[in-house]
Design a protein around this nucleic acid. Structure first.
Length: 403
RNA sequence: GGGUAGGUGGUCGAGUGGUUAAUGGCACCAGACUGUAAAUCUGGCGACGAGAGUCUACGUUGGUUCGAAUCCAACCCUGCCCA
């Protein structure tokens, strides 16, 4: 089975260019491929997860990943899909973010060995481009008619699209050309929302004379209703433990819908496919067990075995019977006589006191397993008999208060 | 540059002088039911306040009025058509 078949089997692939040639190329021997990541934050989020999984599979098959940090293109913002223009980031912020991202990337691809990953930053070549030269050499190869027909611009055509943003495609295509010339990079991979940008690069290289450029896109992680997965009430599901704690991360996957189980096992874990098929075919209580395994595996992949165990234990302690509760999210408080409202705001369980009151009056808050009914309740030493107090919001959100 | 339609809460979208903190959908939160699932039903969803209540909000800035998201003026921004 070749690598493309393997990826197909795991349901990753959405589209690819030059089907036959690409397979041959990949089978012929190691090639270099690239995946782009925009350093708009100091952490990857779940959307990048799949790119890195695929990069990992390709690397294991002997190919060499080039991770492109979009330091130059991040200042523009990809108009595909979204409506907002991204804010500009300073060079220092971008460098800082890029360094933080590298650490996370290391969990998926290795930087060691003959086919160790290479990290490049497109700010290094994009920022010095000369506009006139660029327009003559690159701009002349793009048809506006064709670009406007592309699916990714259609939505923007109705609400407005600036030339500035349209240039994104040219720059991303130029990245591929640059990597092709400098590193012999032959393949660009990305989410399916990148399809237009990717074929832009593939065609640019072919127009200039080469015939060994390819593109591959993978499916985006969506729920059965077609919504993007990995969104939490606090925003994205981050891979950085300071932004999304391993416990929250674990809980997110523990709580996914039955219909998502197969997809998530297949795309976000390395569990063999026949095992995946078996695990996801279960019904009712057994599939609930599968979710435990799934949450553990994914958390392990991102945060390591130790953190995954801690998250699992914290969950068992709270939802099951007993167990070690030392790993649940906790906050140290100065004054044990804090009001319940302040405690809820302090722990971020409520965004405002008003919201905290609503939660209490609807019966959504309990302290040490006793439902709180009085909005004015003040904690006292008897709530800290064990040395801590456990606040619970709804059925699933726990937080430990420590003195 | 000319004409024209617009800019409303997380989002979409009503409202066109006074019970309008602003209908409704979506998103989100909680309750019931369950398997830490889905679906369904119920409640909530600007901030502050224990509460009565107070404050801040309908592109920006001024104005008219007892009273403005709603009327007027200027400005900024966006779509569409023409050039």
């Amino acid at each position: 089975m070749d690598i493309i078949e393997e990826l197909e089997k795991r349901d990753y692939i959405e589209q690819l260019t030059h089907d036959k040639e690409l397979r041959e190329e990949l089978n012929k021997g190691p090639i270099r491929f690239y995946v782009g990541i925009d350093p708009t934050a100091d952490s990857l989020h779940i959307g990048h997860f799949i790119s890195l999984m695929i990069a990992s599979y390709l690397q294991k098959a002997g190919h060499q990943p080039i991770i492109l940090i979009g330091g130059g293109t991040a200042t523009i913002g990809d108009p595909s899909g979204k409506t907002d223009m991204r804010k500009m980031l300073s060079r220092e912020e971008l460098d800082k973010n890029a360094a933080a991202l590298k650490k996370q990337i290391e969990r998926f691809v290795t930087f060691e060995g003959d086919n160790g990953a290479i990290i490049v930053n497109n700010a290094d070549w994009l920022l010095d481009l000369n506009y006139i030269d660029f327009m003559r050499e690159i701009g002349s190869k793009f048809s506006v008619n064709k670009m406007l027909a592309a699916e990714c611009y259609k939505a923007r055509l109705e609400t407005g699209l600036t030339f500035f943003e349209m240039g994104y495609m040219l720059l991303q295509s130029y990245d591929f050309l640059y990597l092709h010339d400098k590193y012999g990079c032959k393949l660009e991979i990305g989410g399916n929302d990148q399809w237009s940008n990717i074929i832009g690069g593939v065609e640019l290289i072919r127009k200039i004379g080469a015939d060994d450029s390819y593109g591959l896109t993978f499916k985006l992680l969506t729920t059965a209703e077609g919504k993007k997965m990995g969104k939490t009430e606090k925003g994205a599901l981050w891979l950085n433990p300071e932004r999304t704690s391993p416990y929250e991360f674990y809980q997110y996957w523990r709580n996914i819908g039955d219909s998502e189980v197969r997809k998530v096992l297949s795309m976000l874990t390395f569990i063999p496919m026949d095992e995946v098929e078996k695990l996801s075919s279960y019904k009712d209580e057994r599939i609930n067990e599968t979710k435990k395994l799934l949450a553990y595996e994914i958390t392990k992949l991102i945060h390591g075995e130790e953190e995954a165990k801690k998250a699992e234990e914290a969950s068992n302690a709270l939802f099951g019977n007993g167990g070690d509760i030392s790993n649940m999210p906790s906050t140290k408080i100065e004054d044990e006589n804090i009001s319940i409202l302040d405690a809820l705001v302090l722990t971020n369980m409520a965004s405002s006191k008003s919201q905290a009151k609503t939660l209490i009056s609807q019966g959504g808050i309990s302290l040490n397993d006793n439902k709180i009914e009085d909005v004015q309740y003040k904690l006292s030493s008897k709530d800290f008999e064990k040395g801590y107090a456990i606040l619970k919001k709804g059925k699933k959100v726990f937080h430990k208060l420590e003195k």
